[in-house]
Design a protein around this nucleic acid. Structure first.
Lengths: 221, 221, 221, 221
DNA sequence: TATGAATGAGCCTTCATTCAT
DNA sequence: AATGAATGAAGGCTCATTCAT
């Protein structure tokens, strides 16, 4: 275990690491459950209305408590969103790394990354929505510097894979790797705005459709 | 002249139409210039920090006046953003319609639409950024119902064109027109987040790159 | 108990009924006391300077708190005056109905109504003052539609009694019932402007004097 | 002539006398006409919504000019209402004095005063409405000290007449003169709230009705 | 753990008034 | 006589946060 906080369960303010790494793991199960329940409620609201537009009162109302009571569980509104975002980032990066580490051919790797990305749309809808809507606001705060750092790491994974694909002549040489990465990334995340779980297509259907277009284009050949 | 208000230049409250259509056209050139200058300043700030996070004080400070003085020109913060967005929507829809009305083959038409879209990235950077970041917030207000309406009209243009392309066997039959439209749309607009005029690629370079990928995919064939 | 809000004590917004009926009854005694204290302070100020001319800052200052803190207890300035007015209306209508329901002769009934009206001058000074000074402003707001409705019901009580008195030849047939009611009503309420408790005449002395003039005139006979 | 202003037509700010006495009489007829037109517009609005609730912009809008332009005619919003009120007070006091000076018997004199008072309801509707609704606000300003002074003079006229009537055994000895005056006064002025010119009863009808009740009561005898 | 009361800073907006043109 | 732009003070209200109980 990397971190052991004596002050179990209660987050310290500030800190340069994501909330998830800062959270005590020794806290009582009940407290942790309550906490996670609150995070889930908050996530739902953030996804619906954005981080800034959601008030702590909204969250408290949803939980049936008073807004001040939230501060027993979290030291600020930011720390809630931090928890949501860091959870998301931790998971996606772990999964990205797994794919990369399999060392398959670039086409398969890219397909794997795309599928993972689309796959987070449903379980991490809130985090992605916040990223989409409030990124500008959050990225300015040093607390969330780790977001940018993770982003950079992710970019490197994709760009390297694309470049490898070009070297192996799997991908066309005349597409710009960085540009292509950005377009893929944005296209995936932005889908959170209209993607409704349980609709015509599930997330993997979306991924398949996207891969089809991305690999072969919409033209008939 | 379509509209001549006796009360020209003075903002009227309410109204179900976009701001641009509601504005008096008879106002003196000087007044109009001042107003447009303020709109530009506001747009810049909205793009930088988001609509909600930008205060009227921010805007007034930027203009070197007091916040209350803004209300000589606009009747609310909303009406400023309305002006920004409606200007953008009016232009893009006019230009979209021109391309559609040329009645060229679907491939050419889609290429035209994509080029127009990318072409707005620079002149309408602020409007597009606001759309991206604050859409969720704005779409809830009936004042901005026209945004959704315009969006629907635009979607129809694209989807119809894609379908026509499929019927003429220019586009693959196994891509979903609506899904494809959404992905194109999102990919274009979201580029506003990282697109810097004067960078490596200009907007038309971006468009060309994107068309390449979209039509033929990134695979080598 | 007629109303039991799970959310007791917290002000809900909106609603088409008077504030008193909307208030949670289950709130703790302490909370209710604080709240009523604030209402009394506000009432005093409204009576002194008028509703519009009294700022929430004035009220808060009087209470020794900050203006924003008032919003912990009330959801708007209007809801405070609502509470004041609805309390007054509820009481006076209950008492009017009691007199009417006693079914005595019209002369006794009218005398009873007049005594009740004058009797409210002291305990409900603030509410009556607000009614006098700010009626025009308040009646325009749909929140206060119940004022007009109550007024109509009251008018009916008086007018019916006067008419009954005329039929029994207790009152002259050549006075207009509605006109007479209005004059009585206004004369009573407007007295709030100069009536000082503890002065030469108390409220019941006023009532007696007024009944004397109203019933028999100022002429010697 | 008591006052000769070199700055004809333009009121000086401040001053202990009513506006009417302060106004220059040598001003050009056209200017004076425009000015009076504006006063009439303002009066209408004050009567409708109250003095405080009427903004200078409301007045300017009604006149078809910008709010700042009003300050060419008046040096403040107060000076407009001053003009309205002082006009009313000058007229009513002049007419009251005429009646008093006729030296008729108290019963006739009181009847005359009542008729004059009701007679102002229509031509001075605005002034009376302002008096009713905004008295509390205005009386606190030294500019309007003359209102209180005039009020006192008027009260003396009425009270003296009532007392004379009692000495001549025309009026009952057991009514309080001051109280009776106040009730008459309030009953008349407050009628402005519901009195509609052109309704069932005109102002003189109202006066007659009131005199009937006041002199002989509503009882049958 | 939660409540209830309060803080303090800031928000959007209004409005009487001023003044150069 | 009027415009158009601006001022400056204030107004009602919101919201994240604190803290004694």
């Amino acid at each position: 275990m990397t971190t052991t906080s004596t002050n179990s369960g209660r987050p310290e303010s500030g800190g340069g690491e994501p909330a998830a790494r800062r959270r005590g793991r020794g806290s009582s199960a009940a407290a942790s459950e309550r906490r996670e329940h609150l995070v889930r409620l908050a996530a739902e609201l953030f996804a619906e209305k954005g981080f800034q537009a959601t008030t702590v009162r909204n969250i408290a109302d949803e939980a049936g408590i008073l807004s001040g009571s939230l501060y027993h569980h979290f030291d600020s509104k930011e720390s809630i969103v931090d928890e949501i975002l860091s959870g998301f980032f931790e998971e996606i990066m772990t999964r990205y790394r797994e794919v990369i580490d399999r060392g398959e051919d670039p086409r398969t790797t890219i397909a794997g990354l795309v599928r993972i990305a689309f796959g987070t749309l449903e379980p991490h809808r809130a985090a992605i929505t916040v990223m989409q809507n409030d990124w500008n606001y959050l990225k300015g705060m040093e607390r969330f510097a780790y977001l940018t750092k993770s982003e950079d790491e992710v970019e490197k994974m994709w760009v390297d894979t694309i470049k490898a694909g070009q070297e192996q002549e799997l991908f066309r040489a005349d597409v710009d790797p960085k540009l292509t990465y950005r377009m893929i990334r944005d296209t995936v995340w932005v889908a959170v705005r209209w993607f409704k779980p349980g609709g015509r297509l599930n997330a993997q259907g979306l991924a398949d459709h996207y891969l089809k277009v991305m690999f072969d284009g919409i033209n008939t050949h």
